[in-house]
């Protein structure tokens, strides 16, 4: 059975989010967010700055604590977990790709070390195997083997982002959170990264939640789309359907405001 067939065979959501709410004092961060995410699915979250999409992502990833609601991962209640359990989850099953690679990399450590460190954190001890796996992953994200001992500070922005992805995926996570992963990159570099991400999602059967303000990125990457405004989800559905036949006034405005290249 291939990865895809296995995925089709599993009919249980990997992640269930129900009524998730986060307030900052009297202000709403995000309110009453509900969705399911299945294995192999990419969910895009779009909305303008301040719409609550980043708050939602950080509550999901456990960087912030939600005030209300439930998050269930693979049948386990995430908000009821102990801090140790949750940390173990974010080191093994989960990954988080930051917009700025500097937030997700250790800039003083070599590229190979950045990837190998993650393996050691989950118990790998054999140096040869760690290095072998690190080199393999650098290859997958198209970083030449002769750069393995260079520090990320010597890399271009696009390479740093690909290194961050390798560091995140080396431990074989099932759920990846991405915050504007293509933001701040040249369009040519963006295309290369999109191609890479699509291949990884397909071949590894990853589930991904990607926050972005770039509608072209979600069209090419996300299966489903959620549109947020003022902390609430105003519309969700199949990505191309939401973009081509938007139902909510805000989504219509968002879609019609995109400049055509």
């Amino acid at each position: 059975m291939t990865v895809m067939e296995k995925l089709v065979a599993t009919d249980q959501p990997l992640l269930r989010v129900d009524g998730l709410t986060k307030r900052y004092g009297p202000r709403i961060g995000c309110a009453d967010v509900t969705f399911d995410l299945y294995p192999g699915e990419v969910l895009g979250i779009v909305g303008e700055s301040g719409s609550g999409k980043s708050t939602l992502l950080s509550c999901l990833a456990g960087h912030q604590r939600a005030d209300l609601g439930r998050i269930s991962y693979d049948g386990r209640d995430v908000l009821a977990m102990s801090e140790t359990e949750r940390r173990r989850l974010s080191r093994t099953d989960w990954a988080y790709v930051h917009q700025n690679p500097r937030d997700g990399l250790r800039m003083g450590v070599s590229a190979g070390g950045n990837v190998g460190e993650r393996l050691m954190a989950v118990g790998a001890r054999h140096y040869g195997q760690i290095r072998g796996k690190a080199v393999d992953w650098l290859g997958r994200v198209e970083i030449a083997v002769d750069r393995v001992d260079d520090r990320p500070s010597a890399f271009s922005g696009g390479m740093q982002q690909r290194l961050q992805i390798a560091r995140n995926l080396v431990t074989g996570p099932r759920l990846v959170f991405m915050d504007e992963p293509t933001g701040g990159l040249d369009v040519s570099v963006q295309a290369r990264l999109l191609d890479l991400l699509r291949g990884l999602v397909r071949d590894l059967g990853l589930s991904v939640i990607i926050v972005t303000h770039d509608l072209a990125v979600v069209r090419l990457l996300a299966h489903r789309l959620m549109v947020m405004k003022s902390g609430r989800v105003v519309e969700q559905g199949l990505t191309d359907q939401v973009l081509d036949d938007p139902q909510h006034a805000y989504t219509q405005l968002l879609v019609s405001s995109v400049l055509q290249a």
Binding site: E41, A191, L220, R224
Partner: peptide
């Protein structure tokens, strides 16, 4: 549901539109 349509498009229903929409560089 969206995920049913995704599965339908993957297995059952093909579409040749007038425009090619792909990730550049592939």
């Amino acid at each position: 549901e969206p995920r049913q349509i995704i599965a339908l498009r993957r297995h059952t229903l093909g579409y040749v539109s007038q425009f090619l929409r792909v990730v550049p560089r592939v």
